[in-house]
């Protein structure tokens, strides 16, 4: 069964039509990519999926459940998390605190007035080491570089043990020497933790290395989809990128 399926979603902001009749499916356990020129409606689609704004029409199914009218925290708690293109972290809190608060604190209301458990702290250290931020753990997240904040945000999402992770341009702004390492980690997360990934990526090389299936958006519509080599050789895709 498809873990996530988006059926004919439309979304406009006042006069700006950002998504027109967009559909896509993400099978469980896979890595799926979304590409498209700037302003083609990729982030808008993410916002629609996670409940950031109401959609104008269409359906969104997650694990067989219609979620298009659920609020953000509820969808998150179903196991679908997203990271932001412009990083969203808790700037005045340390990296460790950013990670701790990303654990499932609502799981047990009675313990919410306790400090974090040893298990959580172990997981925090492990994941900070995983993304290479262990040395920075006592720093305020707001003092990290943009790329480091992206890594932190990724690690924070992993704290929640999501079923699916929606990553909005995870390599944008990351130091080029770190990008290959990040691709490896994304593969690792997918294979070892079984987390399904839906990745918006501007960098063609990255998405070709990462995704098994790629969707291409242009001007708000779904232009094409297919395997990486199919997309790479699709004339419409090439035109959309060159024409931009």
């Amino acid at each position: 069964m498809d873990l996530l399926s988006v059926n004919s979603v439309n979304k406009s902001y006042g006069g700006v039509i950002a998504n027109i009749d967009v559909s896509l499916t993400v099978p469980k356990g896979k890595i799926v990519g979304i590409i498209g020129p700037n302003g083609s409606g990729k982030t808008t689609l993410f916002n629609s999926i996670v409940g950031h704004h109401p959609i104008d029409s269409g359906e969104i199914y997650f694990n067989g459940e219609e979620i298009s009218s659920l609020p953000i925290p509820k969808i998150a708690r179903l196991g679908m998390l997203r990271t932001f293109q412009q990083t969203h972290i808790y700037g005045k809190m340390t990296c460790i605190q950013n990670m701790q608060i990303s654990s499932d604190i609502d799981a047990n209301w009675k313990r919410v007035f306790n400090p974090f458990s040893k298990d959580v702290d172990e997981m925090v250290n492990e994941l900070l080491a995983f993304v290479g931020l262990y040395k920075k753990r006592f720093l305020l997240a707001g003092d990290l570089s943009f790329g480091q904040q992206k890594l932190l945000e990724f690690a924070m999402a992993l704290m929640k043990k999501p079923t699916i992770l929606l990553l909005d341009e995870p390599t944008a702004g990351v130091n080029p020497t770190l990008i290959n390492g990040l691709i490896d980690r994304l593969h690792q997360v997918n294979e070892e933790k079984g987390i399904t990934l839906l990745v918006i990526e501007h960098n063609m090389r990255v998405v070709m290395n990462l995704a098994e299936h790629i969707y291409c958006l242009a001007n708000g519509t779904m232009l094409a989809d297919g395997k990486p080599d199919e997309i790479q050789n699709d004339q419409r895709v090439i035109d959309a990128y060159l024409g931009n």
């Binding site: 925290p73 972290i89 808790y90 609502d106 974090f116």
Partner: peptide
């Protein structure tokens, strides 16, 4: 810490499932 998270970035806190 949840209160602090709301202070620093409430959108993020919501998107991480905090009510």
């Amino acid at each position: 810490l949840a209160l602090n998270a709301i202070r620093d970035n409430e959108n993020k806190a919501e998107s991480m499932g905090i009510h």
